[in-house]
Design a protein around this nucleic acid. Structure first.
Lengths: 224, 224, 224, 224
DNA sequence: CATGAATGAGACTTCATTCAT
DNA sequence: AATGAATGAAGTCTCATTCAT
């Protein structure tokens, strides 16, 4: 047996879980967990049905592994990036939300949002994990930047949590859209990067505006 | 059979499709289409398995009927409401997005967003219908108000489509959240109405601000 | 719909569980539980795979039902028979073990012994049920007769439990044999009724013999 | 590789088949052939799945080897023992059935009875082999002793074949019991050696009794 | 010789749908 | 119109067996 062959074999064996996770992510996001057959996942990963079960004890465990796997690394990476930047908070926010998020949007990992939305109620263990490992740190990261901006006088004294959601939720929606309507042929394909940029600027305008120019919040046409 | 019973029976018979649609919406949103059994829908509607098939030719047609049914009426109702209001566009926007949307958020119809996100890729006919009957008119309605506001000098000259998305996508996300993580016990239950109000104000601040005070959009920490 | 058809349909539905139990007993005894496919059972009962699962929640539950079902009625029936008989205990024993047991031997119920022997260790719940519902009452019944016989002076003062086993175990073995080697073509088909009669007489001879004529139990050729 | 290691390895290699047979006997008897996985057998023998197939071409052949292997040596050994003994036939019988059988009962080989009962109908080749190599010689051996005893005037003129069965079948049942109900925790653990002794004495009492004291065989309570 | 990764036929079980009542 | 027993295609998972190392 040649060393090359050993390496070849060993590399395949070690690469299997990742290949299966990639295949599973792709199919679960496209068709949903229940509508994806285990054999399809195996086939997309280039192995047989049985091999899938050598690496994951059940389809459900595969789902949990997929959800655990793809976002965590990106989140910590983003948090480190934020830590290192010293300039104005508005500029940092723009960097995080535009560059870092655009990367995420374009990677398969963006499908995890759809997967979580779709499957949490069927697999409640997912909720806790996702809240702790993804939402919590991401919220801390963005919220921390805004809090710093307020402290430095860059931003108005807004409700931090709301501001985080206003900034981030449209971006999450973009990810969901990418893997639902956005994947349908007749879609009007809006440019994600352009939208992200403009959205971030629009909300930052709201954050930075020195004088709260908006009218009183209580008046409304249907509730006079 | 007394006349009262005849009326009772006739009324039930006429109400059947609605009861089945309600039951189907509830279960499809909670568990997903594929993971919901036809018999469960029938049971929740208080009829037997066979009866479901008297009113809908298949589970898939039931899904399509659910998606068609719940949002259309609300959209046209909202559009009429908007048409009648004469005051400032900012005030109208607030009214639409706060009162009208909060109603929607709290009704079971809000689950349709999750259903569409989840199922479009498996049933492409849904995409076309949803785009034409829901997204299009809703976007027209909000976009029209913003365009009027710009024309009247109330709003800055922003990209209308982006502004619509920035306003609406977080609200859609709230609906998705309500039927996914928000339905899990360990969730941190943020107050939807409060968030909606603050979000709309924040973005309107960005829209109304006379001078674009935000820094140059090209500088970013990771893309110097 | 004709009344006859209703009855026909209703009768079939009510008869299903029994038909399935009969089929399952036959196949489980012949091939063993693990080697019998659920679909075979259904086919032998004249229904489809799915129908089996309308009546039994799993193959394992079907096994338990089979074991519970077939012996209990016979045991109580035998106990009643014994209760009613007034004559000599030796004659009663002969009646029970020859007539009643020959019936059992020739019925499919005799297969349950093989099934229990084979499957108790895989399904421990079976053990308790079988011990309580079958062994216990049957042992009581035979043991009671012998005890009475000793009290009346018909039998020698032997160990009752051993006598019960000496009488009954060969008969159980006959049942096992019938469904194992006895079912193989090359078997030497000994006549079960003849053997049962002679065996019962032989052991009764041991029981009745007025004087213990057998040599001392401690001497043996390999253990001097 | 040191000479010691070579010897060690060679010894292991030669011992493999026996180790695999031991492991297979143990598991097949406990769980049944169909419910035992080949890998379990290998693991219990301390080798890998693949190694099993170096020594036995299939799981089925392993079963046949197990059944062939364990009883034959004991039978011939017993037959030789019987040949050498010169004393009274009753004493010889007691020796054979008590000492020799108790040994067998306590060894793993006793499980073969269960295995045969369980599997003959699925693997008919087993029947012929078992009848020729086990039943036939054992029956000859015990039957021969009884025939000699009758010839010598030690025993009454009974049906030899029945007497053999009456003596032996309870002992076989004891072996079956040991590996089925007897292995369940809630069992009433009767003492096998005590039972065997008493049973042999009881039946020998029937054999030796000078006068057939038992009542006429035709009268029975249910068949008057 | 020995290993254990890989395969794929096959078993159990579910569930959308039909149809006799 | 309503029911629910019956069906059988299809999906998940197991495991005997092979073969490259």
């Amino acid at each position: 047996m040649s060393p090359a062959e050993i390496i070849q074999r060993r590399r395949r064996k070690e690469a299997r879980p990742q290949e299966l996770l990639d295949a599973a992510l792709s199919l679960f996001v496209e068709k949903g967990f229940a509508a994806t057959r285990a054999e399809e996942v195996a086939a997309l990963a280039g192995v047989s049905k049985g091999t899938l079960y050598l690496y994951f004890p059940s389809k459900e465990e595969l789902l949990k592994a997929v959800i655990s796997h793809f976002l965590v690394a990106r989140i910590t990476e983003g948090a480190e990036l934020a830590q290192r930047f010293e300039g104005p908070r508005a500029q940092l926010l723009r960097g995080m939300l535009i560059d870092w998020w655009t990367d995420l949007y374009e990677s398969p990992a963006s499908g995890v949002f759809k997967l979580v939305i779709t499957e949490v109620r069927n697999f409640p263990e997912i909720a806790e994990h996702y809240a702790r490992e993804v939402i919590e740190p991401a919220h801390q990261m963005i919220g921390g930047i805004i809090t710093q901006g307020i402290a430095r006088g860059e931003f108005r004294q807004v409700d931090v949590s709301t501001a985080v959601h206003s900034l981030v939720l449209p971006l999450v929606m973009m990810c969901l859209h990418r893997h639902s309507l956005g994947a349908c042929p007749q879609d009007w394909h809006l440019d994600p990067r352009a939208f992200i940029e403009q959205h971030v600027h629009l909300v930052l305008d709201g954050l930075c505006a020195a004088q709260g120019a908006s009218p009183s919040p209580t008046a409304s046409p249907t509730n006079p």
